[in-house]
């Protein structure tokens, strides 16, 4: 029986209108979980609730470990270098000096950031480099659960491939339990073990699909079929 790292149970969330309706899902240890759904359906809101940055109106979230989150917009501090951005969390936790430097170096090189990348300010770095710095900023705190919001959006082909390699390496090495929210199926599906397909806003879980044992073609076919199904049902309403 796999250990559950993150358990989301019957979550409701409204802003001016309902966004999430009765969402239940779980993340097993060492698993890469995908969450897909149409744009604006509530994926980011769900991820922020998983991270504890937003509280649900109803329902509960149980986390078995520290959470690290990477936002879609990177959200690096523009007046600090990438090195300083990666080091932020460690500094807030009181780490200093050589120990901090070692930790920053270790996780930066893990995601493929060079020393010269790290000396840049965000505005001088490429989109791919910034995304990796945001990833390293979450990883240095050694989370047990990693949440990624649209990690491939806005990156060119080369940067996407490079980020994919970095993520695979991290999973192979650490088996880090991960949730990836994305609407880019071609990027997400080769990586994910399981996906939840959400309906258009307000988001409900339409389907849970176990992708293990399927080749990429089969995975795409299966998830697209599920999305078409919910979209046609939404159109009929």
């Amino acid at each position: 029986m796999a250990r559950v790292m993150l358990d989301v149970s019957s979550i409701y969330k409204s802003f001016s209108e309902p966004v999430l309706v009765d969402i239940s899902l779980h993340l097993n240890r060492g698993e890469v979980l995908g969450v897909v759904g149409p744009n604006g359906c509530g994926k980011t809101t769900l991820l922020r609730i998983m991270a504890g940055l937003e509280s649900p109106d109803r329902g509960s979230v149980r986390r078995e470990g520290k959470v690290g989150i990477v936002f879609q917009e990177d959200r690096l501090l523009p007046w600090k270098t990438l090195w300083e951005n990666v080091a932020l969390g460690l500094k807030y936790h009181g780490m200093r000096g050589e120990e901090l430097a070692r930790r920053v170096r270790e996780y930066s090189s893990m995601v493929g950031l060079t020393d010269s990348d790290l000396s840049l300010h965000p505005r001088k770095a490429s989109g791919g480099t910034r995304r990796k710095a945001a990833l390293a900023r979450a990883l240095v705190l050694e989370p047990e659960i990693l949440l990624l919001d649209e990690p491939f959006t806005g990156l060119d082909v080369k940067a996407r491939a490079s980020l994919r390699e970095a993520l695979k390496w991290i999973w192979d090495e650490y088996g880090l339990s991960t949730v990836i929210v994305s609407h880019q199926l071609e990027e997400l599906l080769p990586l994910a073990d399981r996906v939840y397909v959400l309906t258009p806003k307000p988001a409900k879980v339409a389907e849970e699909i176990d992708l293990r044992g399927m080749d990429l073609e089969k995975r795409l076919e299966r998830v697209k079929e599920a999305l078409l199904h919910i979209l046609s049902r939404a159109g009929a309403d």
Binding site: G68, F71, R75, L76, L77, W79, L88, Y92, A138, L141
Partner: peptide, 23 residues
């Protein structure tokens, strides 16, 4: 968004002030 980002890596209110609000 920046405030939420630093909070997500453990910033206290004083860190938020000196590292985000002031700059």
């Amino acid at each position: 968004g920046l405030l939420e980002a630093v909070r997500s890596v453990g910033a206290r209110p004083s860190d938020e002030f000196f590292e985000v609000i002031l700059p």
